[in-house]
Design a protein around this nucleic acid. Structure first.
Lengths: 240, 240
DNA sequence: TCGCTTTTAATGTATAGACATAAAATGCAG
DNA sequence: CTGCATTTTATGTCTATACATTAAAAGCGA
């Protein structure tokens, strides 16, 4: 019924920017003008604009003024569901089947291992994610033995390695690469499809601070799995 | 060299939350305690916590206190670069080659058009995105003629349809679906590959308010294009 | 114990003023 | 005209204070 003033200012400009009335690059009134227009103190205008700046809708530069941001990249929020949850949510039984586990030294000739070379020994775990006992994803994972000493002895009957890691060693930074690949001979055999079948490939590297934790490559059967990203154009941060 | 105090407070707690030191649901010190701990005013603590709240890392409740938010889903920010920019950034020449453009009625039997059925007439545009004259993506696009009257006469020599639309009719909401597909016969012919070649398929629907604007299906050559997503500890919202 | 009112502790909003900072604009010396 | 120093201006940070808003907690009567 009575939204706070800084919120009204914020949403006024949010609306005008999102609607296109205020175009990217356009200069907005300075705080002094707005504190007159809205009859409030500068801190109130500042709070509204700070929130818009945090949301990436505007760009503020000292001395120059405040401008509507030009969105160079569209950042969208990708919801990455827990595989087990996702499968169970569709009423199917989830299972992780481990194929291989070994402790070994990194092989620097493989590109993704070169990055983990500084980690000392690695634990390699291969496995399958299954829905109703049918495999839908192949997972190849490398874990730094130094960063996660317990990993080599962990039991994945309950939780797959990804979930186990998340609960034991939360990351602080992650990078994902999404691409389309044809199933390799080995992957195809495990996934019960023809080699070359189009699959969605997700590669993820995670760090905790500056320490490398894990590299994982997941190959999903193309027809069985989609990634859905929803855009809150309003920018990240706000729930609503 | 000298980060502002509210920023230091913010990043302190951001780090401790993201690292798992502060667990979801855990209560944080009240503002009074922190203004003593950091030897500053309450407004400074408040500013730091407001930013964390906007970023969704904490949850603040009057009288009850401030708590570490429990993340419902693992979401990550996916940066979708402008195709033309991306290509030019790699030192290649970008070009869009239009294959087909027509104004027609929707065909409700096709699933994606059914959603656009209420839009009246549609403009269909097929085209290729090329890097150094080599096609790397096929694009099939439908645009509501009512929502974007100028689209039928737009010139795509300068900017591809996506960029043109973005500049003329910014969306307020969008949904993306990412999957792996095998190139169809037609797509394969345009992309100069064998049918069935694994490709990354991005389907996007955009709205402006409640009005449907466009549906687009882009098929990328698997080896030529990746989507990269980064979950920075920096959290959502800030550009950097 | 139940249900109501009152208290109270926490965040939320807003103010006015002070000083810091950075970059655009200006002026000046050469 | 060029290069450099100075000024100006708009945002950035921070304080101290005041009052509003909520919802948990406490009190209390039936």
């Amino acid at each position: 019924m009575k939204p706070p003033l800084h919120e009204r200012i914020r949403s006024d400009f949010e609306t005008r920017i999102l609607s296109g009335e205020l175009e990217p690059g356009q200069r907005l009134p300075i705080e002094q003008e707005l504190m007159v227009a809205y009859d409030c103190s500068r801190m109130t205008v500042n709070k509204a604009f700070s929130a818009l700046a945090q949301a990436g809708l505007i760009d503020r530069r000292k001395r120059a003024g405040t401008f509507v941001a030009r969105p160079k990249v569209h950042s969208m929020v990708l919801d990455v569901p827990d595989l087990a949850e996702e499968v169970r949510g569709r009423g199917q039984a989830y299972a992780y089947r481990q194929l291989h586990r070994a402790l070994r030294a990194p092989e620097p000739e493989r590109a993704e291992e070169a990055m983990l070379a500084a980690c000392g020994e690695l634990v390699q775990v291969d496995g399958l994610h299954c829905a109703d006992a049918v495999p839908f994803a192949f997972e190849y994972r490398l874990v730094s033995a130094r960063a996660v000493p317990d990993f080599a002895r962990a039991d994945f009957a309950q939780d797959p390695p990804g979930t186990w890691l998340l609960q034991h060693v939360p990351w602080t930074e992650a990078e994902n690469r999404i691409s389309a690949v044809g199933a390799s001979a080995g992957e195809a055999a495990h996934l019960l499809v023809e080699p070359g079948t189009p699959c969605l490939c997700v590669e993820r590297s995670t760090w905790r601070g500056s320490e490398r934790i894990t590299y994982v490559r997941q190959v999903f059967l193309g027809e069985a799995y989609d990634l859905v990203a929803r855009f809150g154009s309003a920018g990240p941060g706000e729930a609503a």
